[in-house]
Design a binder for these strands. Sequence first.
DNA 1: CTTTATCTACCTATCGATAGATAGATAAAT
DNA 2: ATTTATCTATCTATCGATAGGTAGATAAAG
Lengths: 183, 183
Amino acid sequence: MSETIPMRDQILSAAEKRVRAVGFNAVSFRDVASDVGIKSSSIHYHFPQKEDLGVHLVTGYRERFQARLQMIDRRSPSPREAIQAFILLYDEALVIGSSVCLCAILSAEANSLPERVATGIRDFFTVNVDWLCKVHDRMDSTAGLFAPLEIIAALEGAMIVSSAMKTREAFDAAAKRILATYI
Amino acid sequence: MSETIPMRDQILSAAEKRVRAVGFNAVSFRDVASDVGIKSSSIHYHFPQKEDLGVHLVTGYRERFQARLQMIDRRSPSPREAIQAFILLYDEALVIGSSVCLCAILSAEANSLPERVATGIRDFFTVNVDWLCKVHDRMDSTAGLFAPLEIIAALEGAMIVSSAMKTREAFDAAAKRILATYI
DNA sequence: CTTTATCTACCTATCGATAGATAGATAAAT
DNA sequence: ATTTATCTATCTATCGATAGGTAGATAAAG
């Protein structure tokens, strides 16, 4: 019994892949439609406007990320282990030369995105910041640590440069440096 | 006697402003043309294709950046002073919420850009890496320092996150941390 | 006369989006 | 059980807007 994946989910998944590769503005309904084997007009049935698609992409991404963060918490890791797992989440999103974290590319485009999409990006970052804050709260001292937003900026920048330069060098260096500050 | 700025330069300058705000894909010939008060078709006289405009934007940006780096060298700064000046160059490019380094936004879009533009971005980064290497060559020890590409990734990421989140927090943190590694 | 720089006018391709038709599933009414 | 109505998900066809790009006229400068 092979489960039939709902078209709506197929669309979201195809769109995310494309957006992560080339950005929101460079993706068209027709691109996504042909990926999943329907017509572009059918996408409007599920997502009336491109903005709606963008909003669902970014909120879905945030929710899945949030779930992964909770999974990390459930393992009751040390702060160092938590950060290590956090970095691994970003690492998974990086495919050199073709894909970065959805919110890395969207935040670079932020000023040309529909407002609700831009808001969704900030929400994603806020979730990350809050989680990192809670990790830091469990530490005796936060001296020398990267600030939460600083960690995110370092990882996002490392992803973008790694993808553009087609080498993991920048990402690996950032990951190592962040982790090194935890005892 | 007010100097008449050549139209070609006006076009480049207007285009750069727009690209830095919203990205390459989100900028049209008509946008740029209306900025400088001509018709979009006239831009094709100076830059036959959009790719040509992009190439000149990125090479011009690199050349000006390179010149600024040489100006820094002429002041014979200490490594720490050199890095400080380097960070200031990036700082100048950051206008919260509306503008980042041209190559920050272009590298995020890299996979959807004409090839010669993507190459130009890598050239820009290479110039930066080479210059940073020379600075590090003058140091007794490079232990603990950010690697050249790591510095660039940190600054680019900090710019993008700062612009998207509408706060300098990430950029200032990155600048401080990089500088702190120099004695 | 040629070159330079711009214009008007237009082209083709594509964009996001809408309208209307259709086929199949579901459900309620008779 | 049959009919009627509604819902779901897609299609075809088309819209107006805009994209990048081209052709040819024009006017000024050398």
